[in-house]
Design a protein around this nucleic acid. Structure first.
Lengths: 159, 159
DNA sequence: GAGGTATTGAAAGTCATGAGCAACTGGTCA
DNA sequence: TGACCAGTTGCTCATGACTTTCAATACCTC
C-alpha cells in the first residue's frame, strides 16, 4: 500500500466522518460552523489523545487566523462526546483527554511516569463484561478499563 | 452468628486496620492524630463510596466538637491512598469517590441514572489484564474497570 | 514536662470547566 | 439574493474541586 493510497483512504474516511457529523447537527437543529469543522479535523489528524487545552493550542498554531476561544473547544468536545463521535478519558484532577471514538472500541494502559497511553483490546475481557452486567440485571451502555503502571520506555530510563 | 459476634469481628478487624495505619505513620515519621483516626473510622463505618465533601459532612455530624477542616480531609485521603489503605474512583469534573481498599480487589458497575455503585470481581478478567500488561512489557501497578449503564432498580422505575 | 516537628483550620490560590452576554453567522424562506 | 433569527462564538466571569500558605496547635520523644 503506497503513501498516496493511504492518504486517499484517510481522506475518504474523514469525509464520511464529516458527513456523519453534519447529519447529526442538522438532525438536532444545530449549525455547522468553521470552528466545529476545524476541531473535528484536528482530532482526526492527531494520533495522540488530546486535552482541551492541547487541542486549543494546536488549533491556534494551524489556524492562527481563526481566533478560536477555549470555551468553544469545551462546548464542541462535549457536543461530540454526546454524539459519541469522541470519547474521553478521565484523569482525576488532571482533567480529561479526548480521542476520536469512531474507531473500534479499545481500552487503555497508562504510564504513571510519562503519561503516555497505549491502546489495547481483548475480546475475552469484552465478552466477560457483558456476562457480568447480565448477571446483575444491569443494562450496560459503556465501559472502560485502565491499567496503570510503568511503560517499557520508562523502565529502561530508570536503570 | 449473632449480632454481638458480628460486632466483635468488626471491632477486631478495625483494630487491625488502625494498627496498620499507625505503623505506616510511624514508619514515615508522621503523627497519629484524632482527625486521622476519625477519618479512617468514618470510612470504615460507611458502606457506600464517599466523596471528600460527603465524608466531611458525615464527620461534622458525628463529631461536631471536632472542627475538622475540609483541607484535612483531602490531605488525609491522599495520604491513605498513597499508603494503599483507600482507593478512589474518578468521576471527571464531579470529583472522586473513596472507599476502604483493605478488602479484596474488585471492580465497579456504575448506574448513570442514580449513581449507585455495585462491586464485582472476575478472576478471568484479572488474569487477562496481567497477560496484556506483560505482552506490552508494561509493569502493571494498578488497574481499574468500570461498567456504566442502568441498574436493575432504575430500569424498573423507567417502566 | 519541654522542645522540636508534624498537623490543623481558615482562607486565599489554582486549575479545569461551565455560564452569561453582546456581537456575529449559518441556513432557511421569501 | 437578501433579510431574518435561532444557534454560535469569544470574552470574561463564576464555579467547584482541590491545594497551598501560614500562624496556631497537637504529637511524641527524651
Amino acid at each position: 500500500m503506497t503513501q498516496e493510497h493511504d492518504f486517499q483512504k484517510k481522506t475518504i474516511e474523514y469525509e464520511q466522518l464529516l458527513e456523519n457529523f453534519k447529519r447529526l447537527l442538522k438532525k438536532n437543529g444545530l449549525k455547522f460552523t468553521i470552528q466545529r469543522e476545524v476541531i473535528l479535523e484536528t482530532l482526526y489528524n492527531s494520533e495522540e489523545h488530546l486535552t482541551p487545552e492541547g487541542l486549543h493550542k494546536k488549533i491556534q498554531t494551524t489556524h492562527p487566523d481563526l481566533k478560536t476561544g477555549i470555551a468553544t473547544i469545551y462546548r464542541t468536545l462535549s457536543l461530540l462526546e454526546n454524539e459519541a463521535i469522541v470519547t474521553s478519558l478521565s484523569f482525576g484532577t488532571q482533567g480529561k483527554k479526548y480521542e476520536l471514538g469512531a474507531k473500534e472500541h479499545h481500552d487503555h494502559m497508562i504510564c504513571i511516569e510519562c503519561g503516555s497511553i497505549t491502546e489495547f483490546v481483548d475480546a475475552e475481557i469484552e465478552k466477560r463484561q457483558h456476562l457480568i452486567a447480565d448477571k446483575f440485571g444491569f443494562k450496560m451502555q459503556d465501559h472502560s478499563m485502565q491499567i496503570y503502571g510503568i511503560c517499557a520506555e520508562c523502565q529502561k530510563k530508570n536503570n
